[in-house]
Amino acid sequence: MMDFSYARPADLAAAGAALAAGGMALGGGTGLLDLAKLGVARPVAVVDLTRLPGLDAIQVSETEARIGALVKMSRLAAHPAMRAALPAVGQALLASASPQIRNMATIGGNLLQRTRCAYFRDAAVGSCNRRNPGSGCAAVGGVTRGHALLGVSPHCIATHPGDLAVALVAFDAVVETWSPNGQRLLSVHDFFLLPGATPGQEFALAPGEIVTGLRIPLAPVARQARYVKLRDRASYEFAAASLAAGMSLGVDGRIADLRLALGGVATIPWRARSVEAALIGEHPTPAAIAAAAALAMREAEPQPDNRHKLALVPALIERTLTDMVGEPA
């Protein structure tokens, strides 16, 4: 691992200054230190944010959950009020990584995790627009079983690896940030950037801007939500495809609210709005669910090795919604 300096700022102002000067933020270390050992991240100055005060609270009210950026994944997963208000969040977290990593990784760092694209993670591969802008994309034409089908560009097809972020996108979370200009609240939908022509810009953050927390609105649909993750192994694996799903039925038996977001198949956590729109106001009949689920991958641009996900994702949606109708939470 390359040499770097280490600082442990005492407050946000000092942390922001160190980051604006080119430092790299250190949370639990599970992302940055892994990538630094690979030579993919090349920190000169590491700024340890983990002892900043006041960023490790979890507050759950009737209408909103507030989660500090330094809360560990394991602690949020186990939080009783969160589990009741938004079970999909705990399920997504427990389906992530391993118990050790969940004890280390922070919620802020989890949002900022990098892709698992093998070409991105191999510093010996010259062509990676995400790592080295303008160098090309070795994944296109390479081994693409794990690569994205949605939100891709000719410049990058790297899959967003997160689980928590999928649930956050389904339930319209808001990211809280701090910068010298003050606090900023931005929708999670605006936080993750599509690769487009600039895959190296992954998050809508300014230099020195620090993620300080999350706010998640607690709509009634959130209480019924679940997170389902399909993997090549039973545990400790990134998603082949995953789904955060929340559904509420009106007194007339029709779908009143529906939230669906996909992981493992897109360059950013992906809201399946076309499927939602086709089902809201409808009775959740098997035929209606199947027809709507088929819309999920209509915009997909598959690679030679990931075409199976064109069928996998609709099947995941159909099975999950069918289960939810059969066994309402």
Binding site: G28, G29, T30, L33, D48, T50, Q100, I101, N103, M104
Partner: peptide, 10 residues
């Protein structure tokens, strides 16, 4: 936790 991804300083 994992000692390989923890800096001694942390």
């Amino acid at each position: 936790v994992l000692a390989c991804l923890t800096l001694a300083q942390q």
